[in-house]
Design a protein around this nucleic acid. Sequence first.
DNA 1: TTTGTCTATAACAATGTGGTTATGAAGGAT
DNA 2: ATCCTTCATAACCACATTGTTATAGACAAA
Lengths: 113, 113
Amino acid sequence: MTPSERLDATFTALADPTRRAILARLMQGEASVMELAEPFAMSQPAISKHLKMLERAGLISRGRDAQRRPCRIEGEALAQVTGWLEDYRKVWEGNFKLLDTLLAELQANQGKA
Amino acid sequence: MTPSERLDATFTALADPTRRAILARLMQGEASVMELAEPFAMSQPAISKHLKMLERAGLISRGRDAQRRPCRIEGEALAQVTGWLEDYRKVWEGNFKLLDTLLAELQANQGKA
DNA sequence: TTTGTCTATAACAATGTGGTTATGAAGGAT
DNA sequence: ATCCTTCATAACCACATTGTTATAGACAAA
């Protein structure tokens, strides 16, 4: 998977409220599929599909405990996408600073005129 | 639009490589639709649709200059989604610290035993 | 006014997403 | 052995996404 494809998968995974809620739940610690499904008015296969997308994006990983497949968050994918956004934010804030400087100079010149 | 719907729209918008490339281009400054379309092997209506999704997510806004509709980045939506991810990252790193503490304690106890 | 440029929209096709029910496989528990 | 729980997969449906071509609107230029 290329970096771009990984971003595709991660952003796609984060674009659904059910999946974000699942991630929020997993922040508190591991959980089985049934445990994750419980709060939602949704069938178990629907949750399994959501988990598959989260796993494909590298946002979660799954273990084995008898019949259960406990899910846990993987921080790396989250860190990568945060990093990507941070880069943009930095450039953007840089632009703002540039604009601020420009406006300050403009105002200074007006004062002089 | 609820905060959750805004996150849906923003993550969906960011989940496409063409749209991310458009944002990258707009980091350098305003650009018209034709200018944005130029680097892509894609029709102008396709680009217009991408711009519509970016606009719906609040990631860009558009002005008017004769026939042209110059696009520019809106930092706020980017800041919001970055904030959301940061919250998660913090909790996640918090968990890591917790784990580190746990491991340190465990090792200390082993030393004592 | 006619022409040309920039952009949006409509109509369409292919594919992806998000849900369902039905069913099967893995693995305790009785 | 049999049953129950957990989970995944297949088949299906409705709708969204992503591209296409064709066309129309707004506006400048001739």
